[in-house]
Design a protein around this nucleic acid. Structure first.
Lengths: 226, 226
DNA sequence: TAATTGTTCTTCGTATACACTTTGTCCGGA
DNA sequence: TCCGGACAAAGTGTATACGAAGAACAATTA
């Protein structure tokens, strides 16, 4: 029982600041904190039940990641993504995720491919159950897994951050499109399995173009220019 | 005008944490803190003459940027770039900086081109004076200026961060190669001025390939795998 | 020698204090 | 009514202190 306690404490070894950062990110992505909303340190500290220090450290990282803007002596506000950043984000994603697809195709082991196929299967099931939230989640997992398979940490961490931002901006539309994008995902995984870098890159590009087009449609009347 | 003054002073106020972060970054890039070296909060606080709080906040951001690694309950150490990360960084840079060159070519105003030409001129002069440090500095400024001209903030900030890391890893070799790379820079600016995106992208790629090759030569016997 | 126990260093989180900015409010005067 | 300035409130920026807990290393014991 003393061991249980120690295990729990040991497993807890996620610093509070990281937990706060994760909570802050998801709160922003989920729309619990809206763009432009003011985030005072005291308020966040209270919301998360911690003192100001972990909150401050989390805020600095969140700023570096582009989720909040910090004005000196005035504090933090949730960042306001504009339609301009949509175009910009997809331009960068196109370059990075096609590279990820190519590298994944060149490096994927059979176990890697199997893990992708497993995600696809689960996605198909979830689609049949009309569980859109789960489909969207599996969608994310698939993308992140491909990044991981690419084996390039820089690429992975940068693209992951971009992906989070895309989710933030299109959290509404993404869930709807998820089932449609699944066919594109199958193409992508097939291409990766084939080991053909060019083909994988093309499949990723097709997918991104479709996602970008859908994003634009969805953005009409969404966040305006700002 | 009183308003202007207040605005300026307010905006000018650099929080200590930002100053610490900047100092930490340059200290790491310049090799004052060597890879693997332990960075205790007390020591940094003393080095920079501030309390531990700003240091901690700067460290979190430095971790997010990849300059330090923080081990829970054990503190921060300077990150150790391996030859693997060199390859990975250049793979990403190739995708991003070619995109930047294309966008710059498509969007550059005549004033933008003039500013690039001005940097080229200064670089030529500095080369004639054999002022390698200045050449390297202008080299950086040119790259960052192109990123700025691309008009894509995501691209700009991500590529800038990568560029800093490249400088860190190759701070020795970069200065030597700077004069040689100047010819490639001229090609690049010419291409941007022409407004031909494809050509700009090709010029950027040539430049990166040369830089990458030089980096590898220089890395022999440098930082090993780690 | 090997295992155990202390000891020390350091991080992690909390709490407190205070200077300084920014912001908002209120009040008197034109 | 509108303006401008005094004044108060809110919140950040920075410093400091303290206790708990973990990690590393030395000392001690079997």
């Amino acid at each position: 029982m003393a061991e249980d306690l120690r295990d729990k404490l040991g497993a807890q070894h996620l610093p509070l600041r990281d937990q706060v950062l994760a909570a802050l990110r998801t709160a922003i992505i989920d729309g619990d904190y809206l763009p432009g909303e003011r985030l005072t340190e005291d308020r966040l500290a209270e919301d998360f039940g911690v003192s100001r220090n972990p909150v401050r450290e989390a805020l600095r990282v969140a700023e570096a990641e582009g989720f909040v803007v910090i004005l000196p002596r005035r504090g933090a506000v949730v960042a306001s993504p504009s339609s301009g950043t949509i175009t910009d984000m997809f331009a960068v994603r196109e370059r990075l995720e096609t590279l990820a697809a190519r590298l994944a195709a060149e490096r994927a082991t059979s176990a890697d491919v199997a893990s992708l196929r497993a995600l696809l299967d689960q996605g198909r099931e979830a689609t049949q159950r009309h569980d859109l939230a789960r489909v969207a989640e599996l969608n994310s997992m698939l993308h992140l897994r491909i990044l991981q398979i690419s084996g390039n940490p820089w690429l992975s961490s940068i693209a992951k951050s971009l992906y989070l931002h895309v989710q933030w901006v299109f959290r509404l539309g993404a869930a709807e499109r998820a089932p449609h994008s699944w066919a594109e995902h199958i193409q992508l995984v097939d291409a990766i399995e084939s080991g053909d870098g060019d083909r994988a890159e093309r499949a990723a590009l097709d997918h991104l173009d479709a996602a970008s087009a859908a994003a634009y449609e969805n953005a009409e009347g969404g966040y305006g220019a700002r």
